[in-house]
Design a binder for these strands. Structure first.
Lengths: 123, 123
DNA sequence: ATCATTGTATTAACGCCATAGTACAATAAT
DNA sequence: ATTATTGTACTATGGCGTTAATACAATGAT
């Protein structure tokens, strides 16, 4: 499965978001070992240095930890993972409301437009 | 009113979005003259070259046009402006649904979470 | 003990973004 | 006619992101 990046944001930031998403949804499980940097880099078709940068940032944020030579693992702090999922969701909701408000929609309009879009794609 | 930028995207891209928003909402009206590059740059606290880049990109997209020395103007194509507003809204909606879906929410969950957030902030 | 695997560090090169400073061409204002 | 204003172009500099290539240290596997 190819990792998709866009050009207006640093790749390493997008990798971080990608991995956060996988942790938040439980696709990467608590304490689970992740693939070695070099393999992840190959999978994402990215330079190992770039992957390393993303991973060490995630480590700094406490979502991963590495053991010198046995590999790198997802945090065992399940509260942190729960918190991650909630804060991502909050982030997305706030962003949506903010943008729609800037566009001139009220909050209820923003809700309505979402409803309409969902119903449309169900038809 | 200070223009707010974040660090993970080129400033000129963010300026483009900022101005698109103003055009879409009608804050900048059809055919209206916009401030000279240098003044916009000063207002945004950005280098004139950066503002120039954003403006010429918007011109390439047909949202602005410039007359050699009399200044720069908002497009008079009101259909394009209407289309801009719709496509921005669609973009925001799709993005929200996509992210929430990736996080493991169903579309209806995404709707519910939005409702909850709106009610919370009204309380 | 040896070897492969792991995370990590370092150096070099290139491109894009942003700033700074300067200049020019066309036109509007006087 | 002269001047100010406008968009535009150009050069140089610095920083960050990305790739490439290489190397080292620690440990697990054999």
């Amino acid at each position: 499965m190819p990792w998709v990046f866009n050009d207006n944001m640093p790749i390493y930031i997008q990798i971080m978001e990608h991995i956060k998403m996988r942790i938040a949804t439980g696709e990467y499980k608590t304490g689970e070992k992740v693939l070695p940097v070099r393999e992840l880099a190959a999978e994402a078709e990215v330079n190992p240095n770039t992957m390393q940068k993303a991973l060490s940032e995630l480590e700094r944020e406490g979502l991963l930890y590495s053991q010198r030579t046995s590999g790198r693992f997802i945090t065992e702090d399940s509260k942190a993972i729960e918190h991650l999922k909630n804060s991502l969701a909050d982030e997305y909701i706030s962003w949506y409301l903010e943008k729609m408000t800037q566009l001139g929609f009220s909050k209820n309009d923003a809700l309505e437009q979402l409803k309409i879009n969902i119903n449309k794609s169900n038809a």
